[in-house]
Design a protein around this nucleic acid. Sequence first.
DNA 1: CGCTAGGTTGAATACGCTCAAAGATCGTGG
DNA 2: CCACGATCTTTGAGCGTATTCAACCTAGCG
Lengths: 275, 275
Amino acid sequence: MDNAIKKVELLINKLMASDWPLIRKCSYIRQLSHDEIDALIKMHKQTRIIKARKTFLNQGEIQKQSFIVTQGWAYRYYDLSNEKRQIINYYLPGDIISPFFSVMPRANYSVASITPLHVCPFSSKDLTELYAFSPQFKTLFEYMLAWEDVLLAEQVCRLGRQSAYQRTVHLLLEFYHRLKIVGQTESNTFISPPTQQMMADTLGLSFVHMNRTLHKLYNDNLISIVAHKVSLLDNFKLKQIAEYPGAYLEIKKQFSFDDEHVQGRQKMHHKVSAA
Amino acid sequence: MDNAIKKVELLINKLMASDWPLIRKCSYIRQLSHDEIDALIKMHKQTRIIKARKTFLNQGEIQKQSFIVTQGWAYRYYDLSNEKRQIINYYLPGDIISPFFSVMPRANYSVASITPLHVCPFSSKDLTELYAFSPQFKTLFEYMLAWEDVLLAEQVCRLGRQSAYQRTVHLLLEFYHRLKIVGQTESNTFISPPTQQMMADTLGLSFVHMNRTLHKLYNDNLISIVAHKVSLLDNFKLKQIAEYPGAYLEIKKQFSFDDEHVQGRQKMHHKVSAA
DNA sequence: CGCTAGGTTGAATACGCTCAAAGATCGTGG
DNA sequence: CCACGATCTTTGAGCGTATTCAACCTAGCG
């Protein structure tokens, strides 16, 4: 009898946990205990809702907290001279905005919402309490920082050494994989809220060329975009085109020291047909 | 008498500390106590010397330690298909290589030396001991991670939204400021070990265009390069060309919560002459 | 002293940009 | 609920920055 109740309790907890993409993401990295899930749920005590298309962290402003994204998309950007801007990275559900606020409170970047955005603010104190509960969370948090670093390095590769065609595919694959982890994909389809202008500002392209590139991908039967619903029509070919390193988002496998083969980026000494 | 001895001791310690660029860098962030300097010196217990032009961390390999760079330059890169590669960032004296090894031991990047390289390896255990000595070091370490993140974001801006001319100036200014912190500049001159091919692989350019761009800067009387000795001939104009945000490397000023004005990137609604 | 890696220069080409104008979609207020 | 404005998307044409290919030069090192 007690066993049955326990099972139900676990199930309910699991259901609750699945509401919090951060918990999904952490569970993806490694199995979380019952208590750990509870502790993480407690990090979500407040929710702040931000309207779509609002810059809610301004460069030069002093930050007093970090945020867990629980719903919607945001992005970090730099305003440059001559009306240009560069989007550095995106924040999807389960991501943490301004993780370094405590040591570098004066951000030199801005963060804006794309969709209506739900974030749970947390302070250094909250984090300290979480670590006090279980020091294991330090590792988890550090892991997420490391992952951020990997994503940024991929962004550098896109911009430095890929064509517009490749960059676009590479970014869409990144979106797909990141969303998949938090359960926001359906087969090969997902919602991609950024406008073409935003994509252009991410990939270092003009919005005109961004548009042409997406159309080329459509004409090549590789993707379809209706409204903001993106479908990847040939995952294998897309990965080939983008020289997508696959493994870099398979965070769980990299987490342990085990020696099983992880497929990384490999040299391909043949040209990829880029129509 | 005791006082005099104490003074001499402090002086000697200070001299020793100046040998370790990491300590210089940390001192730049905030004043370090006598004991803290001692603790940091202890992190340099081993030195490994690596020959110039050696890839000493390979992508896919498992890392077992981090490294403090004490002498020489190194860089992190990704090998891409079609004989291309992208340099993500540089490691200068005082920098830390693979800070995330403990949570993400399987790096998907490679690290190579440019010059002969002196590094001091340290393990998670060493770091834990340092933190046990003074938890303040956690903040310092986190600060360095945050700074890395800022540098990467700047690299993204360079690649995404700047011309070859601007990118080159921007990178040279970054080198200059990073070296200045560890005392490796002389007036407006510094040694820049990367070859033009490496610079090109950093800035997403062909080595041919890299060469032409450097020559253009020379012809515009903005820089001079003899062997690998770079001189910045007009700092003000160079900063203007590169839209250099100045403050992002002035780490000390950003460190505290104080409200004094920090000059960040500003919109300039006039075109920069990039003749 | 010759080899190799790095640097220099020219010419043709291409990828992506700018400018421009028109069409579609969305949100909001009348 | 429709109309209107604003934002986003689409398409065409000409141009410019940076690429590729190719040849030659230079310097450092065995």
